[in-house]
């Protein structure tokens, strides 16, 4: 009896300790009154970010207790470079104009000016395709990268030559994809109108998807003429309804012949 009591007591204590460990861990992981995990993440991120950009300086994460907004910093005399609290952006703070200039030089090496990176992307495309017309460039930033699309255009019409580039924000090229020019001008005169293209798309979808209640809603915005690897095509956006759910449809049609190339649906 005495022995059984002991076993029960030890088992109980063991279970209690297991529960304390388990729930304690979950609590620390998720509870907002413990911001330490987040601070640690910011600290790690900020340190990595600074070390990535400044080869000549070794940064170490430093978090001031009780303050989760504390940035990581490196200072030299009267200027300093920091990351923000999340460790995502680099900020320079300077006390004098001269110091600001010095800090700015350091920052420039960290994050390449978007104009320089754009020029670099255009030069890359020119290496691949003999560019005859002007280049149109679009840039998207997603924190870690500049995503750049360079498109060759003639009188506002795409020629098919296109480059897609992903650069790290310090200007290093990460990945790229190219497509060659498929059209030389003068343009093909036999091109169907956007309205005709829309009608073809609408009728084809009505025939193919009897389960959808299609809405006819032609507007200039619903039809885009673009140049792809297979030539000039219309991209046509339409909407249908199934069980009160709006279904998006996209139809690709050859601009010269009106032949349907492909149709996509949001529920496929």
């Amino acid at each position: 009896m005495k022995k059984a009591g002991k076993i029960i007591l030890i088992t109980g204590l063991a279970l209690l300790c297991f529960a304390a460990g388990f729930f304690g861990r979950v609590y620390v992981e998720s509870h907002p009154v413990f911001p330490w995990t987040r601070i640690y993440a910011a600290s790690q991120n900020g340190t990595e970010l600074l070390n990535q950009y400044f080869d000549d300086v070794k940064f170490e994460g430093k978090v001031l207790p009780g303050d989760d907004e504390s940035p990581l910093q490196y200072s030299s005399g009267d200027w300093e470079i920091q990351t923000d609290a999340k460790g995502e952006n680099i900020i320079a703070i300077a006390l004098t104009a001269d110091a600001a200039k010095e800090a700015e030089e350091h920052l420039t090496t960290a994050r390449r000016d978007i104009g320089i990176v754009t020029d670099s992307a255009e030069t890359e495309l020119e290496k691949y395709v003999d560019i005859k017309y002007y280049l149109d460039t679009e840039v998207t930033e997603d924190g870690n990268f500049y995503r750049i699309t360079v498109t060759e255009k003639n009188n506002g019409r795409e020629t098919g030559a296109e480059g897609y580039f992903v650069y790290y924000t310090n200007g290093t090229l990460f990945s790229a994809a190219f497509s060659e020019r498929v059209l030389d001008f003068p343009e093909n005169e036999e091109i169907i109108t956007p309205q005709e293209a829309y009608d073809i798309a609408y009728n084809t979808i009505c025939e193919e998807r009897k389960d959808l209640e299609m809405s006819y809603d032609f507007s200039e915005d619903a039809v885009t003429l673009t140049t792809a690897q297979i030539g000039q095509v219309y991209h046509i956006e339409l909407y249908g309804e199934r069980d009160s759910m709006e279904i998006y449809c996209i139809c690709v049609i050859y601009a010269c012949t009106g032949k349907v190339e492909e149709i996509g649906y949001s529920d496929r």
Partner: peptide, 24 residues
């Protein structure tokens, strides 16, 4: 790859696959 790298690489690869310029 990190999420950023994975998405960027995926899109580069995917563009090469889409001949009609429609990236879905």
């Amino acid at each position: 790859y990190t999420v950023s790298q994975s998405m960027a690489l995926a899109y580069t690869t995917f563009r090469g696959m889409c001949t009609s310029g429609n990236y879905w």
